[in-house]
Amino acid sequence: MQTITAEELKARLDAGEKLNIVDVREPHEHADFNIGGTLVPLGKIQTMQADELDEFKDQELIVYCRSGNRSGQACLILDTLGFTNTKNLVGGMLYWQEKIG
């Protein structure tokens, strides 16, 4: 697992890069505010029911949550499942909303 900052991610999104972004929060959190990531709650990843992510095993996969804790856990789990390029968004959506808006 590597990390990516909100500023780095925002710059890449603004540049129009096609990114694989996953939100591991709960559906109500995703509905309140998100940056366009695919919703796959941490519980699905913990129970290894995140088959929809298999196509990204050898691609960069940016994972975010509220504060960076759950997404860090998700990255560690995904790494053990054979994912080769997971990145945790440092500070999660709390930091994003504070610094990016």
Rank of each mutant, 00 (worst) to 15 (best):
G82E: 03
Q97P: 11
E55N: 09
S67I: 05
L81N: 01
G37F: 12
P41R: 08
G16F: 13
A11G: 14
D32L: 12
L81R: 01
L53Y: 08
G16H: 14
F83N: 01
R12G: 06
S71V: 03
C65P: 03
E98N: 13
C65T: 03
G91F: 10
G36E: 11
A11H: 14
K99L: 07
T3G: 06
C75G: 00
Y64A: 00
G91I: 11
G37R: 14
R70D: 11
G101L: 08
G68Y: 09
L81S: 00
E8L: 15
D58H: 14
A15G: 11
K18T: 13
M93T: 12
Q46G: 00
G101Q: 14
M93W: 11
K18R: 06
Q59N: 08
L89I: 05
Q97R: 15
L13E: 05
E26Y: 04
G43I: 02
K10Y: 03
Q97Y: 15
V24W: 05
E29T: 14
M1C: 10
V63A: 07
F33G: 03
R12Q: 13
M48G: 02
F33C: 06
L39P: 15
G92D: 06
I62P: 00
L81F: 03
V90M: 07
F33N: 08
T84D: 04
F83Y: 08
K10S: 08
Y64H: 00
P41V: 10
N34G: 07
E17N: 03
W96K: 15
F33M: 09
K18S: 10
P41A: 12
R66W: 09
C65F: 04
E55D: 10
Q73F: 00
T80V: 07
E8A: 11
L94C: 12
C75S: 01
L78A: 03
K18P: 04
L13T: 14
K10C: 05
Q97D: 09
E29W: 11
N88K: 11
L9S: 09
Q97E: 10
L76K: 12
T5N: 12
L94I: 15
D51F: 08
L39V: 10
L19W: 06
L13W: 12
R25I: 03
S71T: 01
L89D: 04
Q46P: 00
K87P: 03
G91Q: 10
L39Q: 10
T80P: 02
N69R: 13
V22A: 01
A11Q: 14
G37Y: 09
R66C: 02
I100K: 12
N20D: 03
D79P: 04
E98W: 13
A74Q: 00
N88V: 07
A15V: 13
K10A: 07
E55Y: 12
A31V: 09
D54W: 07
K18L: 07
D51L: 08
D23G: 05
K57L: 06
G92R: 10
G101R: 10
A6S: 08
L42D: 00
T80H: 05
R25G: 07
N88E: 04
T38W: 01
L76I: 06
H30C: 05
T38V: 13
G72E: 02
Q59M: 04
L61P: 01
M1G: 05
G16K: 15
F33S: 04
Y95R: 15
Q97H: 14
R66V: 09
T5P: 08
L81V: 00
H28W: 12
